[in-house]
Simulated scan of single mutants.
Amino acid sequence: MKQLFFFFIASLTVFSACDNTSNSKKHTPKVDSTFSPIVNKSNRSVDTVRISDKTLSDSTITIIYPELSLKIKQLILFDDSTTTMATQADTVKLLVDLGETIEGQLISLNSDGLTDVKLEQRYKTSVSIADEGPHCDMLEWKHYNSEWKRLHRNKDGDFICLDYSEKDSQKFPSVSIREFRSAVKKHCGQRWDTLIRNVNKVTDAPSNVGISHFFLRLTGKLKTSGKKIVKLIVIETPMGC
């Protein structure tokens, strides 16, 4: 995976320090309600090991639509026992594990029934406030939404996901400190407002801006009818514990 080995160890340390009584978002696995999970261990690499074993994991996520199948070749879900899913829905929501990203990942398609296939990617940033382990992710407040950018294929025909710089991941709409503090009181509470009393902007510690969601959009036309199809994959990435 793209993250360095020590990141995973650090992430485990942070997990152990988390306060379960905090106002931080408690993540549960999110997938579209129409998903029919297919637990198929043969789709996982033979050297797959859970993060709890402090070893890098290599996992392929497969989404099967009526018109095509899509594989993200290295991505670990919050519930990584399910690696293959079938859905009738046009929008799919996935929650990935801490530290996971689609940046630089490879995506393959089995889309023999489609023409004019195009895959695009964008991202969204959110504000998170940390208090050592506990944190409050302001996922219901303001965000920066990047533009859609088309993904290109490598020589093997796989789509290559985009990478983002630290500057990209910290983009956020202009807000006043007064507006920010008001939003923190509303979405997080007084404890968190007290923590940010000395900040001058949303990127000043203990506040931080980071990528909270990735989006993949696939479009194409059915060869049989010319009907246009649009598939959207929303990937939520934990901003903390």
Rank of each mutant, 00 (worst) to 15 (best):
H143R: 06
D156S: 13
I38P: 01
G220L: 08
K30Q: 15
Y65P: 04
L151P: 03
Q3T: 04
S128M: 06
K41I: 12
Q170R: 13
V46E: 12
S36R: 11
K227G: 02
D90Q: 11
T203Q: 07
S16N: 14
I196G: 03
L119N: 05
S165P: 05
Y123F: 15
S42W: 02
K118L: 04
S225I: 10
L119H: 06
K118H: 06
Q3P: 11
L151G: 02
L95I: 08
P37G: 10
P206T: 14
F35G: 01
T13L: 14
V39D: 03
R122M: 14
N208R: 10
K73Y: 07
P206F: 09
I160P: 01
I129H: 07
S24A: 13
F180V: 01
F5C: 04
K231L: 08
V175L: 10
T13Q: 11
D193M: 13
F214D: 00
S59T: 12
G99N: 01
F5A: 09
T203D: 10
S126T: 12
I9H: 10
G157H: 06
V96E: 00
F15E: 15
H152N: 14
V202L: 03
L106S: 13
P238M: 00
V96G: 02
K185C: 05
E140L: 14
M138L: 15
A89T: 08
P238Y: 00
W192P: 03
N145P: 01
E140D: 15
I229C: 04
H187L: 15
G113Y: 05
L4P: 01
F78W: 09
R153Y: 02
K227W: 01
D204Y: 06
D47A: 11
I160C: 03
I64D: 11
E67V: 02
F172H: 06
H152R: 07
N208M: 11
K221D: 09
L68Y: 10
F6Q: 11
L162N: 07
F180P: 00
S22T: 15
F159Q: 03
S59M: 14
S11N: 13
L106G: 01
S81Q: 10
N200Q: 09
Q170G: 02
G157I: 11
D58L: 06
T101E: 00
N23V: 12
K30N: 13
P173L: 06
Q74Y: 05
T48Y: 15
T34E: 14
D19P: 01
K155S: 15
I229K: 03
D168C: 02
S128I: 15
S81A: 08
K30V: 15
E103F: 00
K142A: 15
F78S: 10
T28K: 08
S128H: 01
T83V: 15
L218M: 12
E132W: 04
K223D: 10
T224W: 02
D156R: 09
D97A: 11
E132V: 13
K227F: 03
W148C: 01
K73S: 07
V127Q: 12
E67Q: 10
M1S: 05
Q170E: 13
M85C: 02
P173W: 05
K171D: 05
P29L: 14
K185Q: 13
L98T: 04
I129A: 07
